[in-house]
Design a binder for these strands. Structure first.
Ligand SMILES: [Mn+2]
Ligand SMILES: [Mn+2]
Ligand SMILES: [Zn+2]
Ligand SMILES: [Zn+2]
Lengths: 137, 137
DNA sequence: TAAATATTTGCAACAATATTGCAAAAAATA
DNA sequence: TATTTTTTGCAATATTGTTGCAAATATTTA
């Protein structure tokens, strides 16, 4: 039993070709993936709808998280911390490269606190930095 | 000639009922507006397509800016700084209230700088804070 | 291992959101 | 006011995401 099967098993998910294929794609990628990226790479094996459902399941299980974007696209990336079952701990900064268009999780960079006007109570913060990544600079 | 007409004139845009109506909606609203909000309030006067085109035009002219969101919805808000023709200066924090669901621009709260890993060159930053707003706390 | 059960998948239909071309209408200019 | 330019509405089309359901596959039980 390979790593991907183990991940599925650990999360009480049935081991299927589609799920393994999608896990492979995430582990092979440096950056975040859009639904379209996955469909393009696994489209011969998987139906559109299955991709949607798999991504949803993986988010629920804490295997991947939705990446915030400024262009209202939907991106997903692996959870490196041990997130589980609806409890995500991804308070890290996300970086979008203007050159290669990749979006990467800066897992070690925590979103800084910020002083809000009186009366505002912060609960969660997200931060997206755009610029040039370490490959493109 | 009223304020809204002047705004349009200043931006070399024809003065039309639709554009004035949409400006009115933005100036009457505390928070950011979605396309659907505008359509709901101006739908009798305006076609869906005209709303899309007007929002796009206003963004290009620097009258409004797209508000970053974490739920891949598209929101727009007035530019308070003097943004113009593709040059936006909206490096302020955006706040989403979990209670009333409003998204507001915290125009006076600047997105803090953050230390990135070696090789990453930041150009622009966006920050979205969720929590309870000053009306709902 | 084979049968029974539970889960996942693909397909088709549908819904919501957004874009485009083009002729009619309205606004700006002469 | 006549001419020119810009904007608008409509219809058609594209893109993205959701749902119900039967067939296929995976897991569990015996
Ligand atoms: Mn991330
Ligand atoms: Mn804003
Ligand atoms: Zn890059
Ligand atoms: Zn509120």
């Amino acid at each position: 039993m390979n790593t991907f099967s183990e991940i599925l098993k650990r999360n009480s998910l049935s081991i299927t070709d589609g799920r393994i294929k999608i896990l492979e794609l995430f582990y092979a990628s440096d950056g975040a993936l859009a639904h379209a990226d996955i469909e393009k790479n696994a489209g011969l094996v998987l139906d559109r709808v299955t991709v949607y459902r798999t991504l949803q399941t993986f988010v629920e299980k804490g295997i991947i998280h939705q990446v915030p974007t400024t262009d209202n696209s939907v991106l997903y990336a692996l959870c490196r911390q041990n997130c589980a079952n609806g409890h995500h701990h991804d308070n890290h900064v996300h970086f979008v490269c203007n050159q290669c268009q990749e979006t990467v999780c800066l897992d070690d960079v925590t979103v800084p606190a910020v002083k809000l006007p009186a009366g505002f109570k912060p609960i969660q913060s997200a931060m997206i930095v755009t610029g040039l990544c370490n490959n493109c600079k």
